[in-house]
Design a protein around this nucleic acid. Structure first.
Length: 457
DNA sequence: TTGACTCAACATCCTTTGCTACAA
DNA sequence: TTGTAGGTTTCCATGTTGAGTCA
């Protein structure tokens, strides 16, 4: 009679030893590690291994798992919205693994708390920013009482219910990887980054919940969710919830023309870099096309000129004179509204700030000043705020009812997040998102692409 | 405790025409 | 014959954030 199989946790992996060698080699995800001469699996294989052992009635000793069932109970009588309850029910039916897609402002946090209560397991909530870390800590303390752990932002205190950042999660993986049965990935579109993903790979947590408003990624890595968290189990779009849970809204596109001078400089710059691409036989649209351009561009004087031309062209379309004129008109039209202006670059943010005496927020704005500006925006003291990309995600921004997108990336996510800034529900609110596009430039294409989302059709 | 700093990680940056090799 | 899928170099500049260090 062979010894029972031993499972041990070791720095994000599970070491499998003893028992029958043939049985060990058939365990899902297990392979021989020649460095240490042991059989190992990634932490995430834990559930599959245990299920395999149980199904085949193979005796085993589990020293990997280092947590107990936790009897969570929320100290709140709040009744979930239908979409929150449905999301948790579907997630639980999918064996407690999967991604839930809900628009910003429709109660993702409360949905996660329902899931935590349902799972009855110690849970680790992972967030991308310190702001969100603090928000979650506050909400969890209020909902569940007791001491809520914090790992990140200078704190290191692990409790059965803990909040951390993606950075801290992977840095300290070896210390927490076997202490939680449930992982909640807030804004889970961050997870597929090569380093951040390690947290999901190395943890043994059988239950996993991903939350995001925008699962789509520009690099197509959303295909990784399946292996890191689970499949998309529930999805509701802005359109489906606007009116009832989100404000009513419309989007308006305004086309402007470049001046003759801008037009000429734009054409010259564009031809310069298009010619380089042609000469080097690079197909920009193809796989690795952009990487090849960068590679070639960094290798010769000619290439550097081409790259400069590319940047010049971008700059011209982003900061077109006519855009600022249109902005001025919109500011007059909406003199009584609460307006957020978005750009792609900081230079334009500061230019607008100087020209129209509007407070700017970029990554250079210190946290305290940022908070102050947002508070004054909320109170109405500042009716307009101009920002680049910082407010795209994570920060709790007071409700605006008019958004003006002067420039941006072609990503769906940025566009959805910017729209989300306007949709916090208030009585009789009707939000408008303007998008100002320079005619005859590549912006027309970007604008088209970022609108390829249900919310904008 | 705070603030200034450095460093590391992540995201975006492109678009379509013509060519080739291979599968149905 | 027609249709379709197709590949490899470590990486320019800018924006943003978290962690860590040091005064």
């Amino acid at each position: 009679m062979p010894e029972p199989i031993q499972l041990k946790f070791d720095g994000g992996t599970i070491i499998v030893s003893d028992g029958d060698a043939d049985v060990r080699s058939q365990l899902p995800g297990v392979s021989f590690d020649p460095r240490t001469r042991t059989e190992r699996a990634e932490g995430r294989a834990y559930r599959a291994i245990v299920e395999h052992l149980l199904t085949h009635k193979i005796p085993y000793a589990d020293q990997a798992r280092n947590y107990q069932v936790a009897a969570w109970s929320m100290q709140s009588t709040r009744v979930p919205f239908p979409h929150q309850q449905e999301a948790v029910d579907v997630w639980w039916k999918s064996r407690g693994r999967g991604v839930v897609v809900l628009p910003t402002g429709t109660g993702k946090t409360f949905t996660a708390m329902l899931a935590i209560q349902k799972s009855q397991r110690p849970a680790l909530v992972i967030t991308p920013t310190i702001d969100l870390l603090n928000q979650w800590h506050f909400e969890l303390s209020k909902a569940f009482g007791g001491t809520i752990g914090l790992m990140g932002g200078g704190e290191y205190d692990i409790q059965p219910l803990t909040v951390t950042t993606y950075d801290s999660a992977y840095i300290h993986l070896d210390r927490w990887g076997n202490k939680f049965g449930l992982l909640v990935f807030d804004e889970c579109h961050h997870l597929p980054g090569p380093t951040y993903a390690m947290a999901a790979v190395g943890s043994i947590a059988p239950y996993r919940l991903g939350l995001t408003a925008t699962p789509e990624r520009a690099d197509g890595q959303e295909s990784q969710y399946e292996g890191l968290i689970g499949p998309t189990v529930y999805r509701r779009e802005i359109k489906e919830l606007s009116g009832d849970f989100l404000a009513d809204y419309e989007t308006r596109r305004i086309y402007v023309s470049l001046t003759a001078d801008e037009q000429q400089r734009y054409q010259t710059a564009r031809e310069t870099y298009r010619q380089f691409i042609l000469d080097r036989n690079i197909s920009l649209g193809g796989p690795n096309g952009w990487q090849r351009f960068i590679f070639e561009a960094s290798r010769s004087a000619e290439g550097r000129v081409a790259f400069q031309a590319f940047r010049e062209q971008k700059k011209l379309e982003r900061a077109a004179e006519a855009k600022l004129q249109t902005l001025e008109q919109l500011l007059l039209t909406h003199a009584k509204d609460r307006i957020l202006i978005f750009t792609a670059d900081n230079a334009t943010v500061y230019k607008i700030a100087r020209q129209y005496l509007v407070p700017p927020i970029t990554h250079q704005t210190k946290a305290r000043e940022r908070k102050q500006i947002l508070e004054r925006f909320h109170s109405g003291e500042y009716p307009v705020v101009v920002t680049s990309q910082v407010l795209n995600e994570g920060v709790d921004v007071p409700a605006a009812n008019v958004g003006i997108v002067l420039s941006g990336t072609s990503t769906i996510r940025e566009n959805v997040q910017r729209l989300g800034r306007l949709l916090r529900k208030q009585t009789d609110k009707h939000a408008i998102l303007y998008e100002i596009v320079a005619k005859g430039t590549s912006e027309e294409f970007s604008s088209e692409r970022r609108r390829q989302h249900h919310a904008f059709q």
